[in-house]
């Protein structure tokens, strides 16, 4: 019964990339369980396989062996339609580079996933406005991305990630391109979402501030899980960093 609470389960995942004639193994057997509503940070130096793992969980890439389960569905078994459906409905993505669609306004960006999900126009519009209000950009719904600052674009991205009430939000270095203050805003926003909406948040990050709000931190190094720390353990080991 316990396994039902696992929104994400990563089972002995290996991933190799072929670079010319050499095979580089990036993930060397990852086992991971993430519970519904958890706020999990994946930490690790660059090249540790963080982003690769992240892409596996998001169904953006397939493991060489092992499987990734989302809601106990093995996503490598899914065909293109089901995978698209999963990306549309179950998972919200936030990227380091925001990836707001440049030709669309903030509101159109937020409503796009709802269009894919087949939600009626006015309903999508209302929901979109609601989400923009949630991220504090209600007045700027008609602005194009180039009229928004980095932090604002990232907030649009957060709103867009929430469009179809996903069970999981995957954030790949969401604060990587932001300054400290705006990075904090995004972190607080994510924390608020995880607390109030019960969304599971998984983020890959370098940002130590992210640790303070995480329920668990998964340290990855060289394609393996080095250690998993719970928050209570963290606040001790990283006390000074939090203070600063």
């Amino acid at each position: 019964m316990k396994s039902l609470n696992n929104i994400v389960r990563v089972d002995k995942v290996l991933k190799d990339f072929t670079m010319g004639k050499t095979i580089v193994s990036v993930l060397k057997g990852i086992d991971l369980e993430i519970k519904t509503g958890e706020y999990v940070s994946i930490m690790g130096p660059s090249g540790s396989g963080k982003t690769t793992l992240f892409n596996m969980i998001g169904g953006l890439d397939k493991p060489s062996s092992g499987s990734v389960f989302i809601d106990e569905i093995d996503i490598s078994q899914l065909d293109a339609y089901e995978l698209a459906w999963l990306r549309c409905r179950k998972i919200g993505y936030i990227f380091q580079t925001f990836n707001i669609i440049q030709v669309m306004t903030a509101l159109e960006n937020v409503t796009l996933p709802m269009v894919f999900a087949g939600i009626a126009d006015d309903q999508a519009r209302d929901k979109g406005m609601e989400l923009l209000e949630l991220v504090g950009l209600k007045e700027r719904f008609q602005h194009k991305p180039f009229e928004l600052s980095g932090g604002q674009q990232q907030r649009v991205a957060v709103a867009r990630a929430l469009a179809n009430d996903p069970a999981i939000i995957l954030a790949d270095e969401p604060t990587g391109n932001l300054d400290l203050a705006t990075g904090d805003e995004i972190i607080n926003l994510l924390k608020m979402l995880s607390r109030e909406k019960g969304v599971t948040i998984i983020s890959a990050t370098h940002d130590l501030k992210m640790l303070n709000v995480s329920d668990r931190v998964i340290w990855i190094s060289d394609g393996k899980i080095e250690k998993i720390e719970h928050r209570d353990e963290l606040s001790i080991s990283l006390g000074q960093i939090g203070e600063k």
Partner: peptide, 19 residues
């Protein structure tokens, strides 16, 4: 032992669409 009996059981029949 469990789960793998029907991996797609939880998937509703809805599909993505772009009118």
């Amino acid at each position: 032992m469990q789960k793998n009996t029907n991996p797609k059981a939880n998937l509703p029949q809805q599909q993505v669409a772009l009118p």
